[in-house]
């Protein structure tokens, strides 16, 4: 087995998610684990990957690769895979890597399994573990040919700093015309400032079920009564109801407060990965089938407009008594 891990970076850091996948790859045994770093001015990042388990790091360092867009990365990796005979390519999920992995699958006619939370060797076969249908079933999935491509759910593995150093090898960069057609005009712009929620002991989060931005006062008041902070889903952040800084989930913050109260939040996987390590999870949702109930300690099937103000009152009364 010869495995390649896509090492995603932001600024001058390799992302924890891809280093976690590298650590996982190292445990699969039976062959080399290499990493690939793609960008502009990224050589020093390649050196750093050796400490996390890569025996070899391929580097595609080119000004055309500056912006984190997927299609040029497909070109680079497809060529690398063809030239080296790498049989397994692993990605930690992100907005960027999902598109790289799927583009690569088409380019190489390679099988892709996504949203995996684990990968194991069973009877000489690689088997991916894939939660499905709101995580109510775990599916064992595999590949019928090589190369195989796997995309792991965010936060599935922790990096393992083993020390060591990697052999660094440059790879050629030759891009397809269509791959450079999309252009980054403005990158990673942090919309508005907002409070930091990562250290809050309690988070009361609101979703689209609140019905409108004005109803965020409901969660703000409960958060205040509990001495906590307010969180939000991408749906309400993208809609401009609440600041990006408060967003919890894959493209927001990862939080682990003692208490997380989800109000009018469906519990999408991308939200779940940002809050599943919370101590106690309480959910209020009017839909009895909402996925959030699958991972709540206490679920209330009810209307946030009814339940939340009453709860705020009870908490306030307790404080004043």
């Amino acid at each position: 087995m010869s495995t390649l891990v896509f090492l995603e970076h932001h600024g001058d850091e390799l992302l924890k998610g891809s280093l976690g996948v590298l650590a996982k790859a190292a445990t699969l045994g039976g062959g080399d684990v290499a990493g690939v770093v793609v960008g502009s001015g990224v050589r020093t990042l390649a050196d750093g990957a050796g400490k996390f388990g890569a025996a070899k790091v391929y580097v595609a360092d080119d000004a055309q690769l500056e912006a984190p867009l997927p299609q040029p990365r497909v070109d680079v990796i497809a060529r690398l895979v063809r030239d080296t005979g790498i049989d397994t390519i692993l990605f930690g999920n992100s907005v960027l890597t999902a598109d790289v992995a799927a583009g690569l699958a088409a380019r190489l006619d390679a099988g892709i399994n996504w949203d995996l939370v684990d990968l194991v060797q069973e009877d000489g076969k690689l088997v991916g573990k894939r939660p499905a249908l709101q995580d109510s079933v775990y599916v064992d999935v595999g590949w019928t040919s090589e190369p195989r491509i796997a995309l792991f759910r965010s936060g599935s593995f922790d990096p393992n700093e083993t020390g060591g150093s990697a052999e660094v090898e440059d790879v050629a960069v030759e891009l397809e015309d269509f791959s450079s057609a999309a252009r980054m005009v403005d990158q990673a712009h942090e919309e508005s400032e907002g409070p930091s929620i990562e250290d809050a002991p309690v988070i009361v989060a609101g979703g689209r079920g609140l019905g409108g931005p004005e109803n965020f006062t409901l969660v703000e008041e409960l958060a205040k009564a509990l001495g906590g902070a307010v969180g939000a889903t991408r749906a309400v952040v993208d809609a401009g109801w609440y600041p990006y800084a408060t967003q919890v989930g894959q493209t927001g913050k990862t939080v682990a407060p003692k208490l997380y109260i989800a109000c009018g939040i469906s519990g999408a996987i991308q939200h779940k990965v940002g809050m599943q390590s919370s101590g106690v999870i309480v959910a209020i949702n009017k839909d009895t089938n909402a996925p959030i109930f699958e991972f709540s300690d206490l679920g209330v099937v009810g209307d946030v407009h009814e339940v939340v103000p009453k709860l705020t009152e009870l908490v306030k009364q307790r404080k004043s008594s």
Partner: peptide, 29 residues
Amino acid sequence: RTEVYALNDPPARADSKKIDDDGNAAQVI
């Protein structure tokens, strides 16, 4: 190029509780 081998139960979640709001849910929480 992919296949499904088996379906398994998810890891069980301990002590999870779900109730319908009958007007008293805030008190239960």
